[in-house]
């Protein structure tokens, strides 16, 4: 559970429990923000916006995806952090909440674009059937299209989560990187990615500590691999159904 590779009085410890908790906490926090906003935006684009508005907004959302993570992290330090500190009356805002907000910003474009594709590929016959039965456009969207596109939307969220879990720089800059198990979103957290980023530059090659960092990398690889795999499978299954 405890990660303390440089302990001087006791045996060094190489537990990655706290990091895994930190990673998932920040990522799930990010999804809690990004999923509603992302799906809402996707639904707006696919069902409410006029084609012209859609043509303008889609590339704009893609611009968001193009912002380098280090720039997002920078804004976490100069803007989101101080804002959180003010709102919650705490000394500084470098904590899990800050990381979640930034990761949400980074996950939103993925969620929007894949969810919108999913909503768009719902067969027209479904929509027309619902409208013909006297459903409003809203009812059709909420009760027919979103359920029909569900697996695509789930895949989008999983992919967004994969990105959040693997993101390094924003979290490194915005979460404070304390090594303890966090107790809430206002605590500072340290994720797997940040531990590698902070420590790898400072350990000698081929020591236990060095290998422990690669072990973290392996765990990270496996976790993201599984998350991406699941989203891939969900997406694949859904494409089959649509076809």
């Amino acid at each position: 559970m405890t990660w303390n590779p440089t302990a001087s009085y006791t045996e060094p410890e190489y537990g990655i429990g706290a990091m895994i908790i930190g990673t998932f906490m920040v990522s799930i926090g990010a999804l809690a923000i990004a999923v509603p906003l992302g799906i809402g935006t996707a639904a707006y684009l696919s069902d409410v916006a006029s084609p012209r508005v859609r043509e303008i907004i889609k590339p704009v959302v893609e611009i968001l995806a193009g912002i380098p993570s280090v720039v997002v992290g920078f804004l976490g330090i100069v803007f989101v952090g101080p804002a959180i500190a003010k709102v919650f009356h705490i000394p500084n805002g470098l904590n899990a909440l800050n990381g979640s907000i930034l990761l949400a910003v980074m996950a939103i474009p993925t969620i929007v674009s894949i969810s919108e594709d999913a909503l768009k590929s719902v067969p027209r016959s479904f929509t027309e059937a619902s409208l013909a039965l006297g459903g409003t456009k809203w009812q059709t969207l909420a009760r027919v299209k979103i359920p029909a596109a569900m697996s695509g939307i789930i895949a989008a969220c999983m992919l967004g989560m994969g990105r959040a879990i693997g993101e390094t720089m924003t979290v490194l800059m915005a979460t404070g990187c304390a090594q303890a198990v966090p107790h809430g979103f206002l605590d500072s957290v340290r994720t797997m990615t940040t531990t590698i980023a902070i420590e790898l530059g400072e350990v000698p090659f081929n020591t236990t500590h060095y290998y422990a960092l690669f072990a973290i990398g392996l765990v990270l690889f496996i976790i993201t691999f599984i998350v991406n795999m699941i989203s891939e499978m969900v997406l694949h299954k859904y494409q089959k159904v649509v076809k």
Partner: peptide, 27 residues
């Protein structure tokens, strides 16, 4: 219900756009 729902979606979209606008403006 439809008007409320669509406006909710519009709010989502506007929030996303505002985030981007803010980032660009600030930098």
């Amino acid at each position: 219900q439809e008007i409320l729902g669509f406006n909710l979606l519009r709010v989502c979209m506007v929030l996303v756009l505002l985030t981007l606008a803010f980032i660009l403006y600030d930098i």
